[in-house]
């Protein structure tokens, strides 16, 4: 039996760790799957198993006007907000990532400010943003203070991903392109972007999900109209029907659609690149 993990027969640790991994995956997905199943609970079903007379009634209930909450409206705010945060995170953190490839005066301060922005408790930032807006005489709203609060958390994440991505972009590639007579634009288009692109998709996914699911930073900053996580939070305290699970299922499906879109974008572009030229 070889002690080296890279070749030879599988050491016994493989089986131990494989078991650990499997248990972890069950731990990760088990509860979520039970919620997905229970959201199809019938009229006589409760919040726990068994599933009785499977139906779609809780999904209808979710969007029915009889409900006090505003689920449809919350979706209508959370989706555009998340898409906006996604777009801005890609643009801003990608350009900033390039700046950090060189040492410039103040880079350390900006770096630590980004890290601090990442680790400051969301609730603290929520209070701060609300107080700031109050002193400026502005009222908090999801598209202004909410957007800013989300960016303060999505941008540092995007920046960290860009560090990992740009670490793989050897400046020698760009130099080689220049030496071979490529223009600046051509170098960016044919050398830099192809290497950085998968990372940009990762940044986009992060930007979207960090905004779409963010709770503490949204809490005081979205103003009077709730975004989706706040709506879910309200429901957890006053809704005791499987409608809550139905909402969980719907938000999860939206998240998965976004992941699927992002991944197919990567696949499509890579296929086009490999067959194109």
């Amino acid at each position: 039996m070889s002690a080296s993990p890279s070749y030879g027969a599988r050491p016994w640790t493989f089986y131990v760790l494989a078991t650990l991994f499997t248990l972890f995956v069950i731990f990760l997905y088990g509860p979520m799957i039970s919620v997905l199943v229970l959201s199809f609970q019938g009229p006589s079903g409760s919040l726990v198993f068994p599933l009785r007379e499977p139906s779609l009634m809780w999904f209808q209930e979710l969007f029915s006007p009889r409900r006090t909450g505003d689920v449809a409206g919350a979706f209508g705010r959370s989706l555009p907000l998340a898409l906006l945060v996604m777009l801005m995170t890609v643009l801003i953190s990608v350009t900033a990532g390039f700046a950090f490839r060189r040492r410039f005066r103040g880079s350390t301060v900006i770096f630590y400010m980004a890290i601090a922005s990442l680790i400051v408790p969301g609730l603290v930032l929520s209070i701060g943003t609300l107080v700031t807006f109050r002193y400026l005489g502005l009222s908090a709203s999801w598209i202004t203070s909410g957007l800013g609060a989300h960016l303060s958390w999505a941008l540092p994440f995007g920046l960290l991903i860009m560090f990992a991505v740009l670490g793989r972009l050897n400046p020698a590639y760009e130099e080689a392109a220049y030496d071979l007579g490529a223009s600046r634009w051509r170098t960016v288009k044919d050398v830099v972007v192809p290497i950085v692109f998968p990372g940009m998709i990762a940044v986009a996914l992060f930007g979207f999900t960090l905004s779409y699911d963010e709770f503490p930073r949204s809490w005081l900053t979205v103003g009077t109209k709730n975004t989706l996580p706040l709506e879910i939070w309200t429901m957890t305290t006053n809704v005791t029907s499987p409608a809550l699970y139905a909402l969980g299922t719907v938000t999860t499906i939206v998240s998965f659609l976004v992941i699927a879109l992002a991944l197919s974008a990567i696949l499509l572009i890579q296929r086009r690149r490999s067959t194109g030229k």
Binding site: M32, L47, D213, P229, L244
Partner: peptide, 16 residues
């Protein structure tokens, strides 16, 4: 699972 709502993942422990 990271891409799904934290609150939902938290609540999903209730029926378990």
């Amino acid at each position: 699972p990271f891409w799904t709502s934290n609150i939902i993942r938290m609540i999903s422990w209730r029926p378990v």
